[in-house]
Design a protein around this nucleic acid. Sequence first.
DNA 1: ATTTTTTGTTGTATATTTACAATTTTTTAT
DNA 2: ATAAAAAATTGTAAATATACAACAAAAAAT
Lengths: 87, 87
Amino acid sequence: MKSRKLYNRITVLRKERNISRKELAEIIGVNFQTVGYLEREEYNPSLDLAFKISEYFGLPVELIFSTEPLKPLIEEIIELKNKIGGQ
Amino acid sequence: MKSRKLYNRITVLRKERNISRKELAEIIGVNFQTVGYLEREEYNPSLDLAFKISEYFGLPVELIFSTEPLKPLIEEIIELKNKIGGQ
DNA sequence: ATTTTTTGTTGTATATTTACAATTTTTTAT
DNA sequence: ATAAAAAATTGTAAATATACAACAAAAAAT
């Protein structure tokens, strides 16, 4: 199976928690360069690794990883505000 | 990284849709034996493959795959009914 | 400014996933 | 009961993810 390119928000989420790649890597139990590869979207994680990341951030997989390029979080917020406000 | 064993509900979901492994395999674009390996939980999918399966069934990844053994769907329903009824 | 920490890059080795083929067993249909 | 279809099993090859090391570049701290 030719794997599609996947997008993710690891960098932003990690920055919001103020931890380094090295720290995140230790928490999820991978080499710190592996986090680098993931953040640069040079390869896709296994489902198990995706789960570990999702568990650490306390977020569903779909909010972190996507088959479509991910909008900045701030844009997502604005869209949600519009949706609610426009009812 | 030593990968944890993951559990999934592919077999049940597939049966509910009345399709064979071969058909599912064609839809998600993998070899039909690969579906077999996944259903027998002999190995974990990549995140991309998990996404393809989740897209086909129209369900979030977390409802199909889990790090914990998955209860039969019927039990989930009963638990949800109890939760709602007991308010 | 310079030291320290973090991030990026490159290359190689290992582990895991996926493909594919051939055969056996089980289930379903007739 | 028999045939046909589906699923399981086994083995090998390929592709991809992950580990790890060494070094360069960039950012942050002092």
